[in-house]
Amino acid sequence: MVAGTPTLAKAIAAALVAVTIVYMLAPLLVVIGASFSTSSYLVFPPEGFSLKWYQKVLDTPSYLRAGWLSLRIAVLVTLITVTIGTAAAIALTRFRFPGREPLQALFLSPLILPAIIFGIGMLVLFSRYADGPSLMALVAGHVVITLPYVVRTVSAVLVGMDKATEEAARVMGANRWQRYWYVVLPQALPGIGAGAFFAFNISFDDAVVAIFLRGPDTETLPILIYTQIEFSSDPSVAAVSTLMILITVGMIVAVERFLGLKLLTDRRAAGRG
């Protein structure tokens, strides 16, 4: 019995992992499968094989417009969030100033509070003080919900960084900006990359904030998919979703290639120090 327990535990663990994988992958497989179906409604398993729904997506201006909008928003959000988030992470980990702790909590609060609150708040703000929803309103909303991820990932790297490297640079004649540029930022790069990855993906498939800020010119891809599902169940929705999955997977692979490996070696170096 005693000898059997680890095997049993292993078996249970393996089963749990298997269930989790199936549970996570099943919806993806359903969507991807349905996108290749010949039938004109969403079915699984797919009937036959065709690429006509992809053709239809490419021929539908509303999809293209929404996709282009989502992409522009995600890129803008990523750039802005990475800049603000990195600066905030540096301030929060490197400087001691009054109100540091409340600020830290504030920066991380969107991670804890439901995004819907920010959606409502943004809508009220932009209706009251601007001309209602706009691309910039959406960008602003996404910056708020993605900021904590960048602050987190960059802070984690900065906290783990050998502070003596900055002192060493200082003794070697590097002024404050040179120290950030040559020593701190390059070492924070894995965290910045990971944060950018989160920011892009969260913005690209956000539907909660976007639904509050939607207007005739601010219909993002997730919102369009959502309304399409509501009103018609044509597999072109599945085709669009599959394309979104493709973009995300592409990014994961890129991050793995360029940052994942670097993160691993960084950790090894830190462990030896």
Binding site: D162, A164, T165, E167, A168, A169, R170, V171, M172, G173, A174, N175, Y182, V183, P186, Q187, L189, D266, A269, G273
Partner: peptide, 27 residues
């Protein structure tokens, strides 16, 4: 410190992990 004419070696070495040997020494 950046204006003093000093060279210092730290106990932890404090090498820049993202740079090569030559880049470290060139800094």
């Amino acid at each position: 410190p950046e204006k003093r004419d000093v060279g210092m070696m730290f106990q932890s070495y404090a090498l820049f992990p993202h740079m090569s040997v030559a880049e470290n020494v060139a800094f």
